[in-house]
Design a protein around this nucleic acid. Structure first.
Lengths: 342, 342
DNA sequence: GTGAAAGCGCTAACAC
DNA sequence: GTGTTAGCGCTTTCAC
């Protein structure tokens, strides 16, 4: 860390009067080094403040201790929480992260991206961008050729790859059942954009709960938003117009729910007396909406952590036992947080 | 991308009947290759679906086209927006990102972190974690030894390093002046934790504006929060108790302002009639608070983009002209967004 | 226990 | 224009 020409393993070897290999052995904590040689070499390393070149090690070992991470929409709170979980767990396990953010959610050319990761020798890839439209089309085309383990977040079960996801459908059911238990008879839904798998799942969970309770589901009972607060407002007004008897609404995410609360107040609907509202996500602010929002908290940090742990474990297995782990489908249950909006 | 044993430059050379160097030349778009050789080699590359190993290139070139990024608090919206700006600009400029998130804001052992980046041959480092307490202590100790350009975000001017930051002081002044112009006479402040440089700057901006307007500033006129909505509530109640005549408040960030709005409503203070409120950050939700919040929008995405652009430019200069660029202090002005809370 | 030689996949410097 | 020879900094045989 001092000289311009950084010290290499060779410098250490020369100073210690041993060969590079011996230094390498010390570096990797091999047992076949006499303890006196080891201490001497270590001392020299300290003196020279020597640190091995990770890049040379990667090239030589054909292993980088790096994961590739693909994310999208970092400007939103969800993806960044997931990324936070990924970074913390990776740090714990001694892996570094090579990060790429997709310019748009509907990723088109994934091939160069995978190639880039591959050329950097990443040990595994975490695909943390949401499933939208057909942006998983490449899975069956490109995956077979790619000899790097890939783990996906937030997508439909698929027997080819390991997936870690929040149980969106289950969560939506819990939300809707909660409203039903409260005695609500006309429960509407504001969905996220249905190109998103998550939005479809949440809508499906709402439908399922209603049907199981013997209640009708019809087109007039739901509308479409695009996750944003602004869209929540118009979606809500539209929904209210076509479903005036609505006395409760399950909203696809907290941000849209926020403007449902606001809009209700404007038009004189009291919450929760006239209208019960439940959101999804459990973003921190939701506790401070007026009124505080009942919502399904999804632990995205944990999502990221589980993903990294699982990927690391698969890689260890592959190296140590040469076992290729079967694809898994791991779901994380969101948690209903009941507040004053319901 | 097909065979298990990936194809190397050597395979291409053999098939094309040329030497590795020629292939390398084609790879790097050198001019000293006959166009027929070039096309032939390119064709072979395609057929073999050959892609160079970035890691081998890095080792050989002593340049990785990678930036190290240090962030903290990704679970908050601010840092992740900045990161988003960083990723998008890096992508544009052809740089990859090696990401590390500090476990806590008050980073302690930065030395191993810098060492890790260095061992991965990053071309530059962007330090995007906020300045808190003395967590810049290492700057003068470690920087001289580190022969990698480092660019800092969000910190006090310093003639040793390049810094890109939002003008927190200026923004706070603008906010306060806005309240003064509205005829408010008793303008309080809820500060963020003063270990944070940003919090201190915002408080200073508030003080400066008041003094310039010939108004008094005293201890009873401000309190402390910790950025969170929860803390905003108690800080607000405390402040109101010791400064009952307060008719306006500049709040250190939007999240705390959110619960100021809520708490005011609870105690029957009308906004903006009885109390004007201005926040800082301009998070998307602030438009949908009740009432919508006047705030200073800081473009954190742009912050990240500027940082990457500047760092890349410094590196280019260093390589091409061997000029070491003078440290710069680049500030980005936040923008006052006037809404109904003031 | 330790060292010599070869190799990871590529580029730089120099020859022809 | 193109090939040869040395590396980049480390690990992995395989001797001794």
């Amino acid at each position: 860390m001092t000289e311009k020409n950084k010290t290499t393993i060779y410098d250490v070897a020369k100073m210690a009067g041993v060969s590079k290999q011996t230094v390498s052995r010390v570096l990797n904590n091999r047992q076949d080094v006499s303890s006196e040689t080891r201490t001497r070499v270590k001392k020299i390393m300290d003196e020279l403040s020597y640190h091995p070149s990770a890049i040379a090690q990667s090239l030589s070992r054909q292993k980088s201790y790096l994961f590739g991470v693909v994310t999208a929409g970092l400007r939103f709170i969800g993806p960044s929480r997931t990324l936070s979980g990924i970074t913390s767990k990776a740090e714990e396990l001694g892996y570094g992260l090579l990060l790429k953010e997709l310019a748009s959610f509907s990723s088109n050319n994934v091939k160069p991206l995978l190639q880039w990761f591959k050329s950097h020798q990443v040990d595994g890839i975490i695909w943390a961008a949401p499933e939208i439209e057909d942006n998983r089309y490449w899975l069956k085309d490109l995956m077979p050729d790619l000899d790097i383990p890939v783990l996906f977040l937030t997508m439909e079960e698929n027997n080819q790859v390991t997936i870690v996801t929040t149980d969106n459908l289950g969560g939506a059911r819990v939300a809707t059942e909660h409203l039903i238990r409260q005695g609500r008879k006309h429960i509407g839904h504001i969905a996220g954009p249905l190109e998103w798998w998550e939005a479809r799942q949440r809508k499906l969970g709402w439908e399922t709960a209603l049907k199981e309770a013997g209640m009708q589901v019809s087109e007039q009972m739901w509308t479409l938003g695009n996750w944003s607060p602004k869209s929540g407002r118009s979606a809500f007004l539209e929904l209210l117009a076509k479903y005036p008897e609505m006395d409760a609404v399950f909203v696809g995410n907290d941000q849209m729910a926020l403007s449902v609360l606001l809009s209700s107040q404007e038009i004189g609907k009291r919450i929760p007396q006239d209208l019960s509202v439940v959101g999804f996500d459990g973003i921190p602010d939701s506790e401070f909406y007026c009124p505080p929002l009942t919502t399904l908290y999804q632990n995205q940090d944990e999502l990221g952590r589980v993903a990294v742990a699982e990927l690391a474990s698969q890689i260890e297995h592959k190296i140590n036992d040469n076992i290729i782990v079967e694809p898994k489908y791991i779901t994380i249950q969101p948690e209903l947080i009941i507040r004053q909006s319901s």
